[in-house]
């Protein structure tokens, strides 16, 4: 990868920056970007490679032969499987909570005209701007102090939902701001009840964003560590389990999980890119 060399559209040498200098600058900039991406990807590459190394400590320098053993061992790891199940359970709960909350917030904020809307907006986006561990801590304290609920899967879900709902709300607001409000008026004028307008006009308009928000909420929930770590108490998710194993030492099984994560990410990202490009 390198940067496109820009040619002066006028074909005129401009005084301050002669062409040759600029080419040099562009070359350096291009080289820098290459290094940046190399640093981004090389560690991941090492991690992937080590997943196929027979060596019991993850390594690429000490190659003891190709193996798929670490992948085969994954399904036998009860705690990991249980963690995955917990993760999916939490993610499902997070989606069920965040989407309606996010939608409600977006509907109210895009229509509210009063001065209170700024305050409401600040309150509703604040979870995004607050460190995750604080969300975890406050959720844990709150549910125990008020309802006697011990930290566990439920509190983890509540803590995650508090900020994932904000993300969803921001996505819905962005979409709603592009909505032609006249459509709703037209529907009302034709005799539709507000509920019918909502069902036939507003919801179909939001549907693609709702689907995207579900995917994003799911991913955010599955991948969350900081908040979950504090809110989940004695239970665990796939990611907190990975985290606690990492602390106690390295196992190529973690690499194997990493490979699966990386593969899924790459497939989704490339598919998304191809689909959006085809549409464009």
């Amino acid at each position: 990868m390198s940067v496109a060399t820009r040619t002066d559209p006028m074909g005129v040498e401009t005084g301050a920056q002669p062409r040759a200098d600029r080419d040099w600058a562009n070359a350096i900039l291009g080289g820098y970007v290459v290094v940046f991406f190399a640093v981004m990807f090389l560690p991941l590459l090492f991690m992937v490679a080590a997943a196929f190394n027979a060596s019991p400590t993850p390594s690429v320098t000490d190659w003891q032969g190709f193996t798929l053993r670490w992948f085969r061992e994954l399904p036998n790891d009860q705690r990991m499987i249980q963690g995955l199940w917990h993760s999916l359970l939490i993610a499902a709960g997070v989606i069920v909570i965040s989407i309606p909350f996010g939608l409600s917030g977006a509907f109210i904020l895009t229509r509210m005209r009063s001065r209170g809307s700024s305050l409401l907006y600040t309150v509703l986006v604040s979870p995004v701007l607050v460190p995750g561990i604080i969300l975890g801590v406050t959720t844990m304290i709150f549910w125990r102090d008020f309802f006697g609920v011990q930290a566990g899967l439920f509190t983890a879900m509540a803590a995650q939902s508090s900020f994932i709902a904000s993300y969803c709300m921001l996505m819905f607001m962005a979409r709603l701001q592009r909505q032609d409000r006249v459509l709703e008026e037209a529907a009302l004028d034709l005799g539709a009840s507000p509920f019918m307008v909502f069902r036939r006009i507003t919801l179909p308009f939001l549907m693609p964003t709702i689907l995207t928000a579900c995917v994003i909420a799911f991913l955010q929930s599955i991948e969350n560590y900081n908040t979950t770590f504090f809110a989940i108490g004695g239970s665990w998710t796939l990611v907190t389990e990975i985290g606690s194993r990492m602390r106690f030492g390295l196992s190529p099984m973690i690499n194997a999980i990493g490979v699966i994560f990386v593969a899924i990410t790459i497939i989704v990202a490339i598919t998304h890119t191809l689909v959006t490009r085809k549409r464009a």
Partner: peptide, 24 residues
């Protein structure tokens, strides 16, 4: 598109795994 993928992929990969890759 390539560079955007180059940003999105590491961004979407779990924080822990990216940290883990550095320990190696």
């Amino acid at each position: 598109a390539l560079m955007m993928l180059g940003l999105v992929i590491p961004y979407a990969i779990n924080e822990l795994l990216r940290i883990f890759s550095w320990i190696m």
